[in-house]
């Protein structure tokens, strides 16, 4: 089951009429969308369209004022971020949010935190079950490091890595949690062409080889149209269009939203 693209797959994430205001500003209004199992779902829109607010609601940093969010069979609308992560939702951040003083390996092992069981006292004692668990997790993390071609940088503090590599480590840290839903907040933002192509390849590989459902926010429409199964377009907090990349590209409302802003050059 590599790619169930839409029909046939079950709904992984159901967004039902969510709304969120900050003070008097309505950041997101009445947005509904279904993310199907195994697909790449993109949320696009001009700056300030409410994309990140929506993502922050999915990962539990904000709770919707109205509407609900269902992940698999769980209502996650009012759950705390750590509990949502424990259900199998991992994410990256728009501005790289690595633990800069720590190595690539340490960052990724932290990404695996949700899957680790042993308690505080046994962690003090390095031997025994804690050590066995540690080794098993370590093996899996090494696989992910290899998958992302980061083997030589395992012991490097992330703060000293190039921008594109940091983004890749952040993807790896999210993957380390073995998520069933992976949220990517502008994974290609600020990258040069080569870095973008690398990132696209990794995202596609994750989706196709591991069947991971991916919801991503992106500014670069060209990239999004190439890799997504479905696209939702937000503008001023509301969803103005949704469908396959071709349908969305042809939608006059989308063209207007993009042409109406200074972002028109990015329309593919």
């Amino acid at each position: 089951m590599t790619n169930t693209a839409g029909s046939g797959g079950s709904v992984k994430l159901k967004i039902q009429g969510v709304a969120k205001s900050f003070g008097g500003v309505r950041a997101v209004t009445e947005v509904s969308a279904d993310v199907q199992e195994g697909e790449i779902f993109a949320i696009i829109g001009p700056n300030g369209a409410g994309k990140t607010t929506l993502l922050n609601m999915i990962s539990g940093f904000y709770h919707p004022d109205e509407g609900s969010l269902m992940f698999e069979n769980h209502d996650i609308s009012n759950m705390r971020p750590a509990d949502i992560a424990a259900l199998g939702v991992a994410r990256t951040f728009q501005n790289i949010a690595l633990f800069r003083g720590m190595t690539v390996l340490e960052n990724m092992m932290l990404g695996r935190h949700v899957l680790m069981k042993t308690g505080v006292l046994s962690a003090f004692l390095y031997w025994g079950p804690a050590q066995r668990e540690e080794i098993a997790h370590r093996e899996r993390v090494e696989e992910i490091i290899e998958f992302l071609n980061l083997t030589d940088l395992r012991k490097t503090p992330t703060g000293s890595l190039a921008y594109g590599l940091q983004k890749r480590v952040e993807l790896g840290r999210a993957l380390a949690a073995e998520p069933r839903l992976l949220l990517l907040d502008e994974p290609m933002a600020g990258m040069n062409q080569e870095e973008k192509e690398d990132m696209v390849r990794y995202v596609l590989d994750v989706n196709q080889e591991w069947g991971t459902t991916i919801a991503l926010i992106e500014h670069d429409m060209g990239v999004v149209m190439d890799i997504s199964d479905h696209v939702a377009v937000l503008d001023m907090g509301a969803k103005i269009s949704q469908g396959t990349p071709d349908e969305v590209r042809a939608d006059p409302k989308v063209i207007e939203a993009y042409l109406g802003t200074t972002d028109h050059k990015e329309v593919a």
Partner: peptide, 25 residues
């Protein structure tokens, strides 16, 4: 070196990111 210690450093670094990692801050 210990996992709890590393998680504690993560919490010190950023509460928000730690939460997204499933760490009970």
């Amino acid at each position: 070196k210990s996992r709890k210690g590393v998680a504690m450093r993560a919490v010190a670094d950023s509460h928000q990111v730690s939460m997204a990692m499933g760490i009970n801050v």
